[in-house]
Design a protein around this nucleic acid. Sequence first.
DNA 1: AATAGTCCTG
DNA 2: CAGGACTATT
Length: 832
Amino acid sequence: MPDHDSDSLLNRQTKRRRVDIGVKRTVGSTASSTAAATTTTTDNIARAKAAIFSAMNSLSSHSHHGSDTDSMECSLVQPHGGPGVVSASDSESKSNVLRKLLKRANSYEDAMMPFPGTTIISQLLKNNMAKNGGGPERGERGDRGDRGESGFPGSGLSNASSDAPQEDACSNSSQDSTPQECLSPFGRPPGLATFDIERLNDEHLRAKRARVENIIRGMSHSPSVVVPAVSRHERDHEMDGEREMELDCPPPQSQQQAPSSPRGGEVCSGGSSSRENKRKQRLPQQQQQSFTQLVCQRKEQKQEERRQLKLQLEDMQKQLRQLQEKFFQIYDSTDDSEHNELHSELHNDLGNMSEDSPARSDAGGDDRGGDDLRSDNEMSDLDPGHFLDRARALLQEQALLADGDKTRREGLGRSKGQGGPGSSMHAEGKQLAETLKQELNSAMTQVVDTVVKVFAKPSRPTPQQAFPPISIPPERFPTAVNGDNPNFHTTNPRLQCFGDVIIPNPLDSFASMPGMPGATNDQTEALPLVVRKTPSEHHHQSSAVGAHGGHHHPALHPSSLSASMGFSPPSFRHPFPLPLMGYPFQSPLGAPTGGYPGKDRSSPDSMDLSRETTSLRTKMASGHHLGHHHRSCSPAHPGSTAEGLSLSLIKSECSDLQDMADISPYSGSNIQEGLSPNHLKKAKLMFFYTRYPSSNMLKMFFSDVKFNRCITSQLIKWFSNFREFYYIQMEKFARQAINDGTTGAEELSVSRDCELFRALNMHYNKANDFEVPDRFLEVAEITLREFFNAIVAGKDIDPSWKKAIYKVICKLDSEVPEIFKSPNCLQELLHE
DNA sequence: AATAGTCCTG
DNA sequence: CAGGACTATT
């Protein structure tokens, strides 16, 4: 972070092209920039922009020991009191506009994002039930503030803008509202009130967007030199606000990315600062042009989602009505005693359900309808695709309850406890909503678990499968080449879920990660893959879930993710990084729901990722499990914010995934992932033929092993150890011979019964079940004589005197028999 | 920067 | 035998 700050500061001071790089620099750089800046509108806007960004940052960095500038900016942008503080200056109003827009776009999306564990439907229901006044206080307060400070009459829609105020509340006071509160959708007041209001809100949003676009356009037409940079950053921020995760992730990578990056090379414009170049690469020009397009697209997506949800809800309501009728019929034909019993049951169940979420919905009528419900439940338990059925069942059940209550009240006028005469449909509906929410939650959880299980179980037939294996056994990493990135993509949906997570300054956080050498590479390479892979999984998810009508945030729990990755607990702790990983980086236009890029995944780039993680791989290959390297990474940057941590973790996971893919590209075949004791034995026998095998040779002779760098280096290390022992023995015996009075090297010979050979044989052929080739005896003799001569000549004074001998010996390698290429060579050899 | 090799240590 | 430090090579 410090590095980055100083860097950017320097950069800015020299180039003076970017006024709003980041907030963290506001302390120093803002002051300087404002001091030097002319008071053009552009500058004002830029400042406002910086203020916005700083506000966002301050939100995430729990404590912003704001400098004067900082607090000034903040207060400027965020009038705490609301209506009272109305900014008069141009920049202030503009900043307000921008900020509101950003927040709106951001939170708007967020409102639509079901959190893992909550379903859209439940949210919808909740929102509907809560009605306008039902929102948390914070929403109301924020709402006032929103209306007060915004100059838009259109924002008078109290409910529609309830999500925006949320953001206000968050960004306003990082002290009284913790970031978590802000980030958590749960804390959110109903973002979608009634559909009518939503529609109005859309229009309102559109108007605001149009305004922002105008502003941006105006800025880019401004004569000021600063304009290009400013406008670009304006756009950046705009995008950031709108799609936090999608856009905030890459900048860090690109920032660290060397200019040699494939991407960077194309876009880089000659003399500008590296940072600027990187920013460019991060946001290609086409994207800039189509920013407005993006805005529209995303809005349409939201609308589409809403429409679908509405349809679903209506469908469910319809079914509920049907069931009501049905129940009515049956109920009418029942006698009173039965009737009463039924009622008590129903009431008990109702009580249970309101307390315990996953109330069994088959409790309703034992004789009637109960079977249907039960079967539905069972189905939903087993078949993820029918979880909606469960919801329907629940609705039906609730219908039963409601109807029963009604009937009871109307008919007999006697009540058994809770559902007193005063209880209205509204109360029941509320309860229904509650129950339904809970039920959907649990159902969703089950669905996800089931899906994961289902995918984990089958021994993933072929790598090319539509749905690659998600689960990876701990000790082995059999993911096919295709198996790694589904995990990545899985994170994509969550990207949406955390769309409102405000990353203060990804650049900073990223820069504050010393221990992440390949971070940039990993990310830049991996992310595109995410996008690539996304489609298939998405489709699958939606089909499996069956309720989201193709919209793109199936609630994938961290559990499924981590399970799929093969490491669990560590992953749980950082939900944030995952979305970051899923940053769709190249396609703001091809927004998640929109055109999915091809699902081609086995890009060569992906394999390059793993280059950086030899040590990790080594650990993994040697049986250690990952998990501790996470910890080893995180502490590396103490000062890092949560985002830094997240990014680091992302990095780790990227490499992990890549490792897995790297280590076990041949899952399902006989090929092993690690080196077995037999391989060691084989290697030792091979040493009788070759002391200096090339890695290619090793690959040929260990064809039953999946070769990665780890395996290769391990094998090489083996032979290195063999040589070491070999040369030690040689030196030892040579000296011994000298001490024994041997005068000439000619007197030295290596036979099968000499001590030297026995020592060697004991080492490489302990069981003595392999016939050592004569050639080895010759080589051993030559080596011994070389050592003898060198020692006699006193060359051993030279610290590197052995190297000459090595040179000689390495030329004495002989061909390894073909039989060693057979995986079963040990059996064949030893049975001779 | 990656790889391969040696040397040393445990 | 593995790991780490160090060096040389490319």
